[in-house]
Write a protein that binds this DNA or RNA. Structure first.
Lengths: 155, 155
DNA sequence: TATTGTTATACTCTATAACTATA
DNA sequence: TATAGTTATAGAGTATAACAATA
């Protein structure tokens, strides 16, 4: 869903001063990066970051090695290796493309699906514990902020 | 305008339901990780992530290789190598510890100090642009949220 | 001939084990 | 003998270049 555009910068009237915006941006960025880092550290390291990323891409839709390499901004040989490791671990499946036999279709195995679910559960758990320890007022603020941050992250 | 995202009304002193907390935590975590990723991609890759991390530690205070290895959770030989590269690039300086000649004190050079400043400036710029495009009301919410998130990230 | 994917080779970051020098 | 740091060697991930199969 596309929420009403908040693209107009009418900050000149009632918003923050440029230096206040700069300070806020710096603080927010740092907080996000620290939380991100903590979450990554907490959650189990059953798959390496680059492998996890590839699994997430394949969760959206089956893809070819070439597509994955482009999306992940790595070379084709590198993706060949990464995919090879995932296939060996039984997390990714290779299928020949019947329409173009040069291509290979990669998809997740059921094991990978449940592994992703489990990793996300652990990551959310870390955050959940911390959110639950906040006051109702703070939770209220974060709920409003969450929608804004999500929009910022995706734009 | 504050987009009212189907938010359940709650009793003032009870806070969110467990499932609402879980949903909020998941959304917040994801937003933070995406923003973190975007920021890292945007900012120049003049130093590798592990090198940047070490430089930040040394910014707080001069340290020994052993301390750095423990803080960064890498092996001592690995830290020797990382530090070696930084010394070669003129970003870190070695000094013998006069009280215990087995130890080495590592500290930042002036070049490193200005490099860190420049990297942060670029990272903040990415976030600043996005914050400045929000409405004053949204900026207000983020300002309150920022303090809470910072506390969560550091606890 | 162009494209998809793999193999060949090299470089970097990481780790464990062995070594040097101080304490 | 124990500790701080380095070197030796090996295991992954990444890259570029060369190759095989298919279009």
């Amino acid at each position: 869903m596309t929420p009403p555009p908040a693209r107009k910068s009418r900050a000149a009237d009632t918003g923050l001063t440029p230096s206040a915006i700069s300070a806020l941006a710096g603080e927010l960025r740092l907080a996000c990066m620290r939380i991100s880092r903590r979450v990554r550290f907490e959650s189990t390291h059953v798959v390496a970051p680059h492998q996890f990323s590839v699994l997430c891409r394949l969760e959206d839709a089956p893809r070819t090695p070439g597509e994955l390499a482009e999306i992940e901004k790595v070379s084709a040989p590198s993706m060949t290796r990464t995919v090879g490791a995932l296939v060996e671990r039984g997390l990714v499946e290779r299928t020949d493309d019947p329409s173009d036999r040069r291509q290979v279709i990669l998809s997740l195995t059921p094991d990978a699906v449940s592994l992703l679910k489990e990793i996300r559960r652990k990551r959310d758990a870390w955050m959940s514990v911390r959110v639950s320890h906040l006051t109702p007022q703070e939770q209220e603020i974060l709920q409003q902020a969450s929608a804004i941050l999500t929009r910022v992250a995706n734009e």
